Simulated assay, not measured.
Amino acid sequence: MGTIWADLLGTQVRHLGSRYTTRVIEAGTGEPLVLLHGVGGHAEAYSRNVVRLGERYRAMAIDLVWHGMSGKPPFTGDAVGTYVEQILDLLDSEGIERAHLEGESLGGWVALTLALQHPDRVGKLVLNTTAGIQWNPGSVAEKPAEGRELLRSRSLAAIDDPSPETVRRRLEWLMASPDRVTDELVDVRRRIYADPPTNRSLRTVFENSFGFGSGPARRIREERLADVRVPTLVLWATHNPGSGPDVGRRIAELIPGARFHCVDDAAHWPQWEKPDEHDRVVLDFLASED
């Protein structure tokens, strides 16, 4: 694997949007493909994918508001709704009528919400280890509370003290093997977390995530999955912490016509851990006649 910025050679970084300021790392000139990171993340979550995806699409990895180097508006009680508004603002400001969406974890929650509320703005949908679904009792294996609490505690520790050690522990939660967390990735995230405005905003985001604060109010009831009307790929990983491949398969069963693919030997960041496989599967899906 190359370094983040060696992988991103040929991309451009811009701040776009009208109502919201959105940092975008992008490559390519085809149909738009917007890539959404998870909670506490940033556009570099897709640094190993943007260039290759950009060979066929206008691949746009973004920072969600309150994250990375995007805008820091006052926090709302409806964070997911604000993220949806941000993406629509980005599309409108660029004159994009419809875009493909891939969302990882929180990003999948946002992308799924947008597809349900504004299906006319979404081409195809990739749900990558997605979060945010409210399961009926007994529908899937219960997600262990310890995994969610561990992520919350590591997230808040990294914000309280954005040191190489605390940031590395937070990133290791995402990977099937700790050695996949590079020193460069730690340094990029540490610098983002140490930025005072980002630090303040992410603290509020974390306090309203992981089942606490206002986050649970926006969860999507499993019955709503039957209402998805755009072609969908559910992308999972064998070692996804807390919710295994059975959960991904269940999502694919409930979304009409959805495909399912499970990446072996990966956890919560298959696009980083297994970029070749991720990109091949996503590109094949986007090019299909679904």
Rank of each mutant, 00 (worst) to 15 (best):
W5E: 15
L16Q: 02
Y20R: 05
T22F: 07
V24H: 03
T29R: 13
G30K: 06
P32R: 01
L35P: 09
H37G: 05
H42F: 11
V50Q: 11
V51N: 00
A59H: 01
A59M: 01
D63V: 03
M69A: 15
K72Y: 14
T76Q: 12
A79C: 03
Y83P: 07
Y83G: 09
L88T: 03
D89L: 02
D92W: 09
G107E: 03
Q117I: 00
H118I: 04
P119W: 06
P119C: 10
L125Y: 09
N128W: 04
A131Q: 09
Q134T: 04
W135F: 04
N136Q: 13
G138Y: 07
G138I: 08
S163H: 06
P164C: 04
E165Y: 01
R168S: 01
W173A: 11
L174W: 00
L174F: 09
S177M: 14
V188R: 08
V205I: 12
G211L: 08
G213V: 13
A217D: 15
R219P: 04
E223N: 01
P231S: 11
G248N: 13
A252H: 12
A252S: 13
I255G: 10
A258E: 10
A258S: 04
P270Q: 09
K274W: 03
K274Y: 05
D279G: 02
V282M: 08
V282F: 11
A287T: 05
A287F: 02
S288C: 06
